[in-house]
Amino acid sequence: MRPFEYTAATDPADAVRLVAANDGTRFLAGGTNLIDLMKLEVETPRAVVDINRLARREPALEQVAELPDGGLRIGALVRNSDLAWNPVVQARYPVLSEALLAGASGQLRNMATTGGNLLQRTRCYYFRDTAMPCNKREPGTGCPSIAGHNRINAVLGTSPECIATSPGDMPVAMVALGATVHVRGPEGERAIPLADFYLVPGLHPERETVLRHGELIVAVELPALPFAARSHYRKVRDRASYAFALASAAVALDIHEGRIRDARVALGGIATTPWRSFEAERALVGHAVSHTLFRTAAERALAGAVPYAENAFKIELARRTLVRALTIVSEMTAR
């Protein structure tokens, strides 16, 4: 690791000011991604601002609070395990709890924060190895994954510049639930729907979100979504645990008398961003539950998929994963 300056902020306003003041300064939350990448020298900040003590000034940052409209506000510093184990989350948004528990390991979930998880970076082999070129890490150097190893990379949302998968589980569930990210910058707070938060690589794979430098994520809000009590996260990976998704599906269904009234569908492990599939949702809504319907929705979800040499299997795997998740949710009795 290169040397850097370390400051432990206790006031969110200070933290924002310190980071905003300098391009080379980063927020440090759980550290499970940032410190990892600093060791690899993929990230080389000149200074880090430790935000782990901000809750002393602003306890909400570490709290999960029910909102008057039935939604939920999750502080950015809430640890992944606490969020997964939260009884309200387990009851009202099981898809989120399951997604969290399917990610990383017990130790990592105790460290990782909600804000940090949203911003974790791709596991593309080439991105994480500074001996190799990579458009995302060093714009303009090329993408060696496209003609190299790309089994773990994306089939949706790719561009000729980058095909890196967005690796997270939690964000997939949150995108499905229609979450909103609340951020605070030098110019004040703004709320960004999570579906608009992430950017596909296009010509600029180095830009992953609409977050501006110095903006601190303070919370994620989940809307009231009563039918999300019938929701599920299915993750498929190379071993039974402690591995990133090859494909995953987050699904919530509102079923009335065998007919789908409303649906939320998002896919993970196969796209350059946590992938909300409005196509699949449209295919589902208004129709009677059936295997054929689920299969149709899955076809729609993957309609634009582009395979690369090693990852063509992900297209069919993602379809089947989605069908599985839909099937499981459709068979749940409403809680």
């Binding site: 082999y125 080439y126 190799m132 071993r239």
Partner: peptide, 30 residues
Amino acid sequence: ALEEKTLVDPRTARYMNANLEEYHVPVNAD
């Protein structure tokens, strides 16, 4: 049988999964 394989980049002969996250060995749950 199910997990282990070292990946080598064909152009540079660089070991691409030279870590314990992408070189999969069995975990307890396996």
